[in-house]
Design a protein around this nucleic acid. Sequence first.
DNA 1: TGCTTTTGGTGACATGGTCACCAAACTGTC
DNA 2: GACAGTTTGGTGACCATGTCACCAAAAGCA
Lengths: 224, 224
Amino acid sequence: MNTSWIDKFKGLSRLPDDIRTALVAGSQIVTVPAGTQVFAPGQTADNLLLLLDGTVRVQQKSDTGREVFLYRVHAGESCVLTTACMLAFEDYSADGIAETDVTAVAIPRKTFDDLAAKSPIFREFIFTAYSRRITDLFTLIDDIVFQRMDVRLASRLLELANADNVVRATHAFLGTELGTAREVISRTLSEFQRRGWIEQSRGEVRLTGREGLERMVKSAGAEV
Amino acid sequence: MNTSWIDKFKGLSRLPDDIRTALVAGSQIVTVPAGTQVFAPGQTADNLLLLLDGTVRVQQKSDTGREVFLYRVHAGESCVLTTACMLAFEDYSADGIAETDVTAVAIPRKTFDDLAAKSPIFREFIFTAYSRRITDLFTLIDDIVFQRMDVRLASRLLELANADNVVRATHAFLGTELGTAREVISRTLSEFQRRGWIEQSRGEVRLTGREGLERMVKSAGAEV
DNA sequence: TGCTTTTGGTGACATGGTCACCAAACTGTC
DNA sequence: GACAGTTTGGTGACCATGTCACCAAAAGCA
């Protein structure tokens, strides 16, 4: 039995051998293609997912059809919201989408509960994951309420850029990512371009002057 | 040993007798006066609080000194953020203040961990509490991003009004409550007054036409 | 090629946040 | 009561952002 994936998760690496064995035996590795809805309100989720590879985007759907990005689950993190999903709250309306092809460890409810009973380290791992999400949401709220749009966009561009300093995203995508309107993104990007920080082409932003963006973010005392 | 407070918490009422005894024996009832800081970043919290009476206001402090209200913990709910506080995340900056005199059950870390190991029902109670907070934050974010200020204020006034339809709060307080500026509250309240929905006096808003406020809230498909 | 869809640009306008002030209402002190 | 200081609320000007109504260019497709 291969337990090697366990060490991808910081909080789990200290698990004793018997728990590691139980965890691996009681779970399975799954892959889901990009675009799959990993969880959704009303849909019973009977697995806790630990991401080995890829990213999951968690977003809030409003009544009016618009969407706000909440957070992104990366490899090495767990998608605790699926456990909240298990509990099925009435008015809750967030869903999770695989942004890329995703490989994950699926821990069924029974295994999850057994381990939570037996292992203090596993418990701490779960509580830490919950707390991390909560504090992430705190900083997101702080950001939305207090931070200027141009700073938030600059910060997000730096985050999303690949090794070639290119962000592959439409203005509309960046809009939902920051919970704003496409027009606002268009205007702000034009301004960035005027300052020589970026070049634009359809569906793509090329960062030609990271320093400018970084300066803007830093001088605003930026959160992520 | 008096275990009667346990039944104030919906998720705990199903606890078996031995766990009830352990919970009561391993915790104590505390009271804190209004205005006390219940938890804060950097401050080690070694107790999980279950509120028996009073309310705790959880708010985010921004770098610039402004504050946003995040949520309110009521009697019968647990203040799970103290557990997050135990974990002490770097960039986390929310604090909790007793808004009224508060009576609470303080569960020290050791008892908490013992019970989490022994009782599936206790575990579920804790996970439910976490999930509840997370979904609360989701609806808050949705509200901030999509809802108009006048609707949010109307909704909040209805919530905060006492039995006499009076809200005792300054404009500045309502401002932090909704994450906006005092001036915006002043303007919006003037408009409500013009429409005959409220009367104002210093530090006090009297709801003289709840129907109008309720209509506004309902027609916006309102969240809390 | 022409038609449709996706993406991006733009002006006009409404809402909300910020700033600078002022005025009125309370508080405490003499 | 008179006075000064503090708290609370009101207001106009201005800027940032969200909304709406269009249009145009680019890409996809029959």
